[in-house]
Nucleic acid binder design. Structure first.
Lengths: 238, 238
DNA sequence: ACCTGAACACCGTTCAAGT
DNA sequence: ACCTGAACACCGTTCAAGT
């Protein structure tokens, strides 16, 4: 009689495969539908977020995601249609973290400022999502849509003409997305190296910024552009 | 005696493998260094550009690139260290197409306008390059650096304070990169669908833009944001 | 120096089989 | 409905061998 078939005997020392448990048990699941589902979109989203935090977007593969959830890769496809779907789930989760609380509570320009900084900071750690968000229908991302609603309402109450609200948001968002990439640039990205002599204006400008800038360059550019946008959009408000 | 081994017999109708030549001959090259090199970076760049034009960035694989050049994939690695290197070559080629001719010939704001529209238009067809450019040291991209030099010089002559030139360029460029993604968005990206009732402000704004906007939405947003940036940056000029 | 060809260690995704 | 396991059609990259 094989050991696995012994009825109700508790093994005194080792589990039934007699292999020493060096770490967390593999906890093999046999084929077939489990009694209660082990996966859903929320569980997949949080595992993806954890994986990204640990291994970055290069480490976010369907195989690694499945491993971290202790399932076969193919099991994921019962809950998402593609890897892109996973990215959409993560994106919408992050959208909920963006701070829109100042809309309706502060003057519109201050509300835009807080929203924009928060939006940039959240997505600068998730730039691989930007190409996805930029073309993502809002219907597929409810939290993202909720963010747009808050901003739209804020701009309307501030007196922005109705037909310019969406364009203003898109313009701000485009600036924010581009700036999120800029945050990840290496510090010496503008070092002209051996080409310095053939690019005197650029080289002098880089040197000047480095000499007296105490802010991070990405923050200085974001602040400058955001204030320019806010004042430019504000001037066109009525 | 097998047909393939017949010595020096010219087959009267078909080539020696007896297969009909339906298209261009495969033109097999045998192993070993060829008499004159078949590849260099310029040839690789132009093949990549042609491939992207025909099959998009999904079609740009090292295998497909090699096939279009009639070499083995591994041959590419004698001229580039990685696929990313190919993308950098393409990026720098495109940077030379961006129009900076108005700097020094037109008022600074008009020069920035032409540069920005041109820059956006070129890269809106090449958005997969944006994550690469955004973090690319300028030393690795001479044409890109030449573009920055032209813009820097234009802004200096316009009276921009030295230490704000780089930040201004970065702010404009961030807006341009984000806007390039926006060009590729589907027309109905903002259709709230079944969520329309829970997002009244946003829905009304989308409707209002659709009703009276004759411009493409991406162009309206780009124009609005660019004019806001130009006037905002101009106000801070001195 | 600069090719070919074989191999490596992966990918995302599909699908039959199982419960 | 929701798992497993095997398989498919790819990837980018490395490296010995050849000239």
């Amino acid at each position: 009689m094989p050991a696995a078939a012994r009825p109700n005997t508790k093994p005194p020392v080792a589990p039934r495969d007699a292999a020493p448990r060096v770490a967390a048990a593999p906890a093999k699941r046999r084929a077939g539908r489990p009694a209660t589902a082990v996966l859903d979109q929320a569980v997949i989203t949080s595992a993806a977020l954890q994986l990204i935090g640990k291994s970055g977007y290069d480490g976010l593969t369907m195989a690694a995601l499945a491993r971290s959830l202790n399932v076969a890769p193919s099991a994921l496809y019962n809950h998402v249609a593609s890897k892109r779907d996973v990215l959409v789930l993560v994106e919408d989760h992050l959208a909920a973290l963006v701070d829109v609380s100042a809309f309706g509570a502060e003057p519109w320009d201050e509300a835009v400022r807080r929203w924009a900084w928060s939006y940039r900071d959240v997505f600068s750690k998730h730039t691989p999502l930007i190409p996805v968000i930029a073309v993502l229908p809002v219907t597929d991302a409810p939290q993202t849509l909720a963010m747009y609603e808050a901003v739209s309402q804020g701009l309307r109450e501030a007196g922005f003409p109705e037909e310019r609200i969406i364009s203003s948001i898109v313009a701000l968002e485009s600036f924010i997305f581009g700036s999120a990439f800029d945050v990840t640039a290496p510090a010496d990205i503008f070092d002209p190296g051996s080409m310095a002599e053939s690019t005197p204006s650029f080289t002098a400008a880089v040197r000047s910024l480095a000499e007296q800038g105490h802010e991070k360059p990405a923050d200085a550019a974001f602040s400058l552009g955001l204030e320019a946008l806010i004042s430019g959009l504000g001037a066109l408000r009525r």
